[in-house]
Computed example of a mutant assay.
Amino acid sequence: MRIAFYGSSLLSSYWNGAATYYRGLLRDLAARGHQVTFYEPDAFDRQKHRDIEPPEWAEVRVYEATESAMRAVVAEAARADVVVKASGVGVFDDALIEGVMKAARPDAIRIFWDVDAPATLAEITPAPDHALRRTLPSLDLVLTYGGGPPVIAAYEGLGARRCIPIYNALDPETHHPVPSDLRFAGDLNFLANRLPDREARVEEFFIKAAAHLPDRAFLLGGNGWHDKPMPSNIRQIGHVGTRDHNAFNTSCLAVLNVARDSMAAVGYSPATRVFEAAGAGACLITDAWVGLELFLKEGEEVLVARDGADVAEHVRSLTPERAKAIGEAARARILAEHTYARRGAEVDILLKREAERVRARGIAA
Rank of each mutant, 00 (worst) to 15 (best):
R61E: 10
A305N: 08
G7V: 02
A103K: 00
R32F: 02
N16F: 02
E204S: 14
L296C: 05
Y22W: 09
D348E: 14
M230D: 09
L182P: 11
V302K: 04
E203H: 13
T20P: 01
R110D: 04
G308F: 00
P118F: 06
A254E: 01
P118V: 00
I111A: 06
A364S: 13
D140E: 07
Q236I: 10
T286S: 15
C283K: 06
V178W: 08
R162C: 08
V142K: 05
D261K: 14
G186M: 03
V60C: 09
R243C: 11
V304H: 08
D187A: 12
T242G: 00
L96K: 00
Y268H: 14
P165A: 05
H226F: 12
D187L: 11
D81H: 12
A336D: 13
E203I: 10
P126F: 09
P41G: 12
E300N: 07
E123V: 10
D197M: 02
D28E: 15
A19R: 15
G146Y: 03
L294G: 14
E293S: 15
A211Y: 01
F295H: 10
V73G: 00
A345S: 13
F112D: 01
T135K: 08
A254K: 00
F206T: 03
Y21L: 15
A18K: 05
E67R: 13
R194D: 08
L220E: 04
V266F: 10
M101N: 06
D114V: 02
E276M: 01
G224H: 10
R306Y: 10
A345G: 11
D287M: 01
H176R: 15
V83L: 02
N249T: 09
H49Q: 14
V266R: 06
R361D: 12
A355E: 08
W57M: 05
V202H: 01
V142S: 02
V151Q: 11
N223C: 12
V74Q: 03
N249W: 09
A341N: 04
E300H: 11
P126H: 08
K297H: 14
M70K: 06
G33D: 00
T250P: 05
R61N: 07
F218L: 01
A264N: 12
T286W: 07
R342G: 14
H226A: 15
N246A: 15
R32Q: 12
F205H: 06
V347D: 06
D81M: 07
N189H: 11
L195S: 14
